[in-house]
Amino acid sequence: MSGWANYIVFIIATGGFYALLALSLNLIWGGAGMVNLGLAGFFALGAYASALLTVSAGAPIVAGFVGALVVGAVGGYVVTMSTTRLRGDYLAIVTLGFAETIRLIANNEIWLTRGSDGISGIPGPFRAALGGWFNAAYAAGTVALVVLVWFLLRRLDLSPYGRALRAVREDQQVAQVAGKRILRFKIEAFAISAAIAALAGALYGHFNSYVAPDVFQPLITIYIFLAVAAGGVGRAAGAVLGAYLVIFFLEATRFAAAAIPDLSPVQHAAIREMLVGLALVLVLRWRPQGLLPEHIPPAPRPASTS
């Protein structure tokens, strides 16, 4: 496979990683109301866990994915346990710090992570056997995983558990008064969310065969916030749609900016960045609820007893 088809397939796969990150953010931000600015950190945890397991320890790729999920969930558990008293902006700042800490560890603990050189030569599943079709097969697998995660999160949303989570989001004191163990809900939601972000990281690493601290700059977290805000906070389908819109938009601006004649490359780059900013402003101004706004199904009425 080559040419446009290969490029589009590549974008579909990359969009899938973004979509998983958006689903992760949507669960914790849209579902439980906790702002996680450390998404890039959990993304990095998964990518490094899987890369180290498969490259340094020689484990099979499946073990890499499982390891990423476990490390991500444990990371999420540790972050929530150490921030149980923090809410809102304060939690956001701590999570941002967490992501930077992960990036600095990856940069400086050279014995483990190979520092800023990064880890190259990460194996991809059946890469040699598939040859030119690897990208297409991987994109299909990624999309299948996105659909699976979306389906599971939707089930979660519609279940009593999802309703309790939203109750925590709306007012955690009321939820507590109603007898919900809010700390447990928060920890579980955060751990699941972190595991999904880590899964995205593992997928990214095995696809591109290379991870380095530079990949996990805060920029990617901002893109995902843009995706979830545009798609609709609190709705899994919105997050997926938003992620694909963002990646489509990022790539389309390449061609749009290049169509303007007589500009230097740096001006094209600046126009691309301006368009991304403009898109965010327009979405927040005209459609703050997102393209697919959350709709909360009415709670089932208890069977009448009279």
């Binding site: 040419g3 990064g118 990949v215």
Partner: peptide, 14 residues
């Protein structure tokens, strides 16, 4: 950024 760089390179190549 390696992630953005790879996307750009893919476009250039394909």
């Amino acid at each position: 950024n390696p992630e953005a760089g790879v996307r750009a390179a893919r476009k250039l190549i394909d």
